[in-house]
């Protein structure tokens, strides 16, 4: 039995909005520490890993481990029906074949209830190896989203070059090229506006902007993003 109540639905709305282009069908793995999602996109180019800790819900109850197989396009449609400030309760019975979602407006004058059919999603759990990255860049997430969007006008791929005291985003295509250089800024007032480049050694790698733009949709969830790069290993965002 799972019953979890989120004080405001906006968090789950943003999460689903951020992953729905990448994840078709996947399991919400629920246990007493929270709800986890781990899924690759259909072309196996990207992996989404998410944990919603039990502490973020009130109350949170999960009697035994349960995997809820969900079609994320359906869940995204249902989440559109929730108001940002509604409190949201998700429930799944013992051998549930539906996930129940309830949205309650702040003054409880509107209660919406949806059931979405659950499906069997056989997904193996992948181990993400611990990696000591050559370069780790921390920057405002909105800025990263802006860079990915801007450079998409020039090319479908972006080269990210991390050197001492700077990170450069370069896009070159048939019509021309563009580059955006971001430099570390110390002692900023807002932590989220900080830019730091931690370098073990310089690194220069190319990535598909299609996926970076998908990842950047999660920018509304956190003010700061960390990019970790090393040769021959996936970019960690």
């Amino acid at each position: 039995m799972l019953e979890a109540r989120l004080p405001s639905a906006v968090t789950l709305k943003k999460i689903i909005d951020a992953v729905k282009e990448l994840v078709q069908d996947a399991n919400f793995d629920c246990n007493d520490s929270g709800i986890a999602l781990q899924a690759m996109d259909s072309s196996h180019v990207a992996l989404v890993a998410l944990l919603m800790r039990a502490e973020g819900f009130d109350p949170y109850r999960c009697d035994r481990n349960i995997a809820l197989g969900i079609n994320f396009a359906t869940l995204a449609k249902v989440m559109k029906c929730a108001g940002n400030d509604d409190n949201l309760t998700i429930k799944a019975g013992e051998d549930a074949d539906v996930l129940s979602l309830m949205f309650e407006s702040t003054n409880s004058d509107r209660i919406s209830e949806f059931d979405i059919k659950l499906m069997d999603v056989d997904a193996d759990h992948l181990g993400i190896p611990e990696t000591d990255y050559s370069a780790t860049i921390k920057m405002p997430s909105a800025e990263f989203q802006r860079i990915c969007r801007d450079l998409s006008v020039m090319s479908e791929t972006v080269t990210i070059e991390a050197v001492k005291d700077a990170v450069k985003f370069i896009a070159s295509g048939d019509t021309g090229s563009g580059s955006i250089t971001v430099k570390p800024n110390q002692a900023v007032d807002k932590k989220d506006m900080e830019v730091t480049v931690t370098l073990q050694e310089p690194v220069k790698l190319a990535f598909s902007l299609k996926y970076l733009n998908h990842f950047a949709k999660a920018s509304t969830l956190a003010g700061s993003v960390t990019l970790s790069l090393s040769d021959d290993v996936p970019l960690m965002i």
Binding site: M40, S43, V45, D124, H125, L126, P129, E156, S208
Partner: peptide, 14 residues
């Protein structure tokens, strides 16, 4: 040219 690689071989099946 840019060649997109997939992740399949990277992660360990647990």
């Amino acid at each position: 040219g840019f060649k997109q690689v997939t992740l399949s071989s990277y992660f360990t099946r647990r």
